[in-house]
Computed example of a mutant assay.
Amino acid sequence: MTSSPDYPEKDRPVEAWCDLHELHVRLSDGRHVSTPLWWYPRLLNATPAQRNNVRLMLNGVHWPDVDEDLSVDGMLNGRKARGAVAPSVAAE
């Protein structure tokens, strides 16, 4: 696999998983990126089985059961999904 100017090889995901509160992605250069699940309402509302059905892509991660695609670039740059509401705001 070769990298391109638009997508550096070092940012390729090699593993992805969710726990109860965060999405975790390990990159090919060894970095581990974690973002809050509330950033991605589809994943937050998914069942554990749906979250565990994950497919790695060249530049991101795909969850076929909930039709969610997230880019590594978006995670690294703190981009949340539209409609994402922080838990403290949602509780008010």
Rank of each mutant, 00 (worst) to 15 (best):
67 D>W: 03
85 V>D: 04
80 K>G: 06
9 E>G: 13
64 P>V: 11
22 E>W: 11
63 W>V: 07
78 G>T: 08
10 K>Q: 13
73 D>M: 12
29 D>K: 13
46 A>P: 06
16 A>P: 06
47 T>G: 09
84 A>T: 02
26 R>V: 13
1 M>Q: 07
71 S>I: 03
90 A>S: 05
25 V>C: 01
80 K>R: 11
8 P>W: 03
58 L>W: 06
14 V>S: 07
51 R>P: 05
24 H>C: 11
53 N>R: 15
74 G>E: 03
26 R>H: 02
46 A>N: 08
27 L>W: 04
67 D>L: 05
36 P>K: 14
16 A>K: 08
13 P>F: 04
53 N>T: 14
84 A>K: 01
77 N>R: 15
39 W>L: 12
42 R>L: 09
79 R>M: 05
41 P>K: 13
63 W>S: 06
89 V>H: 02
75 M>A: 05
46 A>S: 14
20 L>Q: 10
85 V>G: 05
61 V>C: 02
37 L>T: 02
79 R>T: 08
15 E>N: 08
27 L>I: 02
12 R>F: 02
53 N>V: 09
66 V>W: 04
61 V>G: 00
85 V>C: 06
50 Q>K: 13
71 S>D: 06
66 V>M: 02
47 T>C: 09
1 M>G: 15
37 L>V: 09
69 D>W: 01
74 G>K: 07
12 R>Y: 00
22 E>S: 15
91 A>D: 01
59 N>G: 05
44 L>K: 15
73 D>A: 15
89 V>I: 15
35 T>A: 15
50 Q>G: 07
11 D>K: 14
43 L>E: 02
67 D>H: 00
46 A>H: 08
19 D>G: 12
3 S>D: 03
33 V>N: 01
84 A>I: 06
55 R>L: 07
5 P>L: 13
45 N>H: 09
82 R>S: 13
